[in-house]
């Protein structure tokens, strides 16, 4: 997979300028953490990469066609179980392999319950598992640890690091602790200004 290049991205919603001449490079096979304050355009950047939002100006190249993501909201199928939510994106996954992954994120006991009955943290882990197991060529993570307690956050981050090794991952967050947990390179984003790779 080639690297992902973002050049001169501009995006405004009404009067609000969200991205202004934002450029960045995301190396293939590595994790990049995009960090910035709330409202600085992190989610908009991911939405542009996912193709859900068109930039007003600028170019994005190298985005593969097969993506997977943890969205800002969980976007789960509420009436269905964790198993069904994962089978929705990866129906050919064997029960044994799925069981192993559910165990790894502490969801084995609750995998058969409708996700609407699960806690916020459990739902978040289902969303993470779905994204990891969908096996996309690019994994986009929008504040993936939102709603997880400290201990769970650390164990889920360890799971994510292990499962995404060698894959291209872009994670956005406002929390430096989450950057430290995920590792990889850091890209700081300033409100409506150009990104800076550190």
């Amino acid at each position: 997979m080639e690297e992902i290049l973002v050049r001169g991205l501009c995006k405004r919603f009404g009067e609000k300028v969200v991205l202004q001449d934002f450029s960045a490079r995301f190396t293939s096979g590595q994790t990049t953490c995009v960090m910035g304050r709330s409202g600085c355009g992190k989610t908009t950047l991911l939405n542009i990469l996912m193709g859900f939002v068109s930039p007003d100006a600028g170019q994005v190249t190298g985005v593969p066609s097969h993506l997977s993501a943890v969205f800002q909201e969980d976007r789960l199928l509420d009436g269905f179980s964790a198993r069904a939510n994962i089978a929705f994106v990866r129906p050919q996954l064997t029960a044994k392999l799925l069981g192993h992954h559910l165990e790894a994120v502490g969801l084995a006991q609750d995998a058969g319950r409708p996700v609407r009955e699960l806690s916020g943290g459990m739902r978040r882990r289902v969303a993470i598992l779905r994204a990891v197991l969908a096996d996309g060529d690019l994994l986009l993570l929008d504040e993936p640890f939102k709603g997880l307690d400290e201990a769970t956050r650390a164990s889920v981050a360890a799971y994510l690091r292990a499962e995404t090794a060698g894959r291209t991952v872009i994670m956005v967050t406002h929390d430096p602790d989450e950057v430290a947990l995920m590792g990889g390179s850091l890209l700081k984003m300033e409100p409506a200004e150009q990104g800076q790779e550190l």
Binding site: L67, S68, A69, F71, E73, R75, L77, R130, A134, G136
Partner: peptide
């Protein structure tokens, strides 16, 4: 629409 976007991103077929 957010669920439909999710399905589109994960390339889920019409039947599912």
């Amino acid at each position: 629409s957010k669920l439909l976007e999710m399905a589109q991103l994960f390339r889920v077929g019409f039947g599912r």
